[in-house]
Design a protein around this nucleic acid. Sequence first.
DNA 1: TCAAATTATATGTATGTACATGTATTAGTT
DNA 2: AACTAATACATGTACATACATATAATTTGA
Lengths: 152, 152
Amino acid sequence: MKLEQAIQSTKFKNETHKAGLNILYTAWWLKTSFSQALKEYGLTHEQYNVLRILKGKHPEQMCVRDIACRMIEKSSNVPRIVDRLEIKKLVKRSVSSFDKRETMIQLTAAGLLLLEVTTKKADELFDSQLCVTDEEAKQLNELLEKLRQKEV
Amino acid sequence: MKLEQAIQSTKFKNETHKAGLNILYTAWWLKTSFSQALKEYGLTHEQYNVLRILKGKHPEQMCVRDIACRMIEKSSNVPRIVDRLEIKKLVKRSVSSFDKRETMIQLTAAGLLLLEVTTKKADELFDSQLCVTDEEAKQLNELLEKLRQKEV
DNA sequence: TCAAATTATATGTATGTACATGTATTAGTT
DNA sequence: AACTAATACATGTACATACATATAATTTGA
């Protein structure tokens, strides 16, 4: 669907302005299909993101701060997301012996198992939903990174 | 900043997968700078979006449903956003005489004024933050729309 | 014409975001 | 060593999202 149809608007200030809205809309669309796919496993897409990050270090633990700085949405409130994962026994919290201020998070066996299943689903979704060639994806990545040049 | 630095991850399944994450990250970044700019006016970026949509029809009114289907994030809860705008006297609610189920929303003079000031700020932000040429923006729009081809 | 289905909006709940503040621990300075 | 600053995390609050349900008005169709 064209952006014009999606947000029922035909006039944009310029192509750059339209690109901004197009990125926001595409991100919403992507998050939504993603969340949809995870729903049957009782995971939100942020919870999935945290599990994925933990997997990267598994079986080592990670502290909350290290998880936070790997999140796509930097202002995510990791302790709260971990709360929910802990209730579902997908992760375990413990106090760091190295620095007692740190809370160390570790995937449980259940978490690891659920992650394997959902990762398969999620990867399939990415492959089937995102209709660009490898070359186009590369181009898209370059454009997005150029666009973000002034990032602070 | 490259995506790799932003989310401290170097391995991606493929370029398409990376593009997906890149879109999500760029959208977060954009929303954040945007919200930052609106903060001094006491508006959230969703509230601004609703005001913008209302402006499109001003001085006519719009019903909640019409606003909703123009939102970038379709699952936004428009009645609740309108609640907050109404408290700040930026919009006015009234029951439609045409169909009493409908709630008609209209910008107030205060809303219109605030919108003018914030629109200027927002447009400046878009122009200064999004570092792409007109040609690149056009390319980006095409790629995003190709990517979303399978949209339902 | 009237009961049933549909529609428009409001509202409840769980989760997440954005930001401020509180608490415990560690690091740094003198 | 003791005081101060910084750090890591938890938690409170306001707003937003995602989805389910409630309520009232309108439309449909038997």
